[in-house]
Amino acid sequence: MKKILILISLFCCLPAGAQEIVAHYSALSNQDLSAPDPQANLWDDVAKTTVILLPQVVTPPSRVQTTVQKLNVQAIHNNVWLALRLTWDDPTQDFQMQSHHASDACAIQFPVREFDKTSPFMGTKDYGVAIYYWKAAWQKDVEAGFQGIKELYPHTWVDSYEFGEEIALNAHNPVSLQKRRRPVEDLIAAGFGTLTTQQQQNAEGSGVWQEGSWSVVIARQLATGDEQDPQLSVGTKTGLSFAIWEGSQGDVGGRKNYSMWVPLTVKAN
């Protein structure tokens, strides 16, 4: 615990340096950012910030080495929606849900309160975080329907499921959703192991894998009206941090590549 606190204080005190993300007002304000398209032309002119990723070694289970070293982040807003595009190199597209597979994924973390007092390591009890998490497997669910046994193993034969039950589904576990409308999940956390699905799901997103890289847009309204989200507005200065999971390397949960806080400014123009 002491080690973690030292790390937190060390990284929280780091100057922002050259890294900064500025969300300008998009001239294409008629673009519907609530249905984001990672390949839309509007992203061509948006400045990219390169964010360096670190292997998660603060708490087990962890990664000894990064599986993705960096990502590019772009941000825009239209006074109502804030959209961030994350792009990173990944030679394999991993979205399958068999037991030995892991899905590619990414996440953006916001401090719920002052970002300079919030730990980038999933927050703390008093300074929590909101996380918007996109997963390739969910993208596949949205685009092609739920990946059930028949989709994963087309030649499967089963006599009967008559007496079977899907307990996690009955328990309303959000990871078990069979009809997923969006590939993004809104979460909160207040320390390691506390990740919890938000009661209201506001974020939207979409991801495309092409020629060895993922482009994922995650969008949320600046003012969501959801008390579990930090409320943003034009002029807000806060911080963001990021995580990337490389499915082919078994990245899942805490086995991830993460970044420290990167300052974010939502500019009026």
Binding site: Q98, A168, V175
Partner: peptide, 9 residues
């Protein structure tokens, strides 16, 4: 791992 509920059992 249950690949339909996506949880461990």
């Amino acid at each position: 791992y249950n690949m339909v509920t996506r949880t461990s059992e």
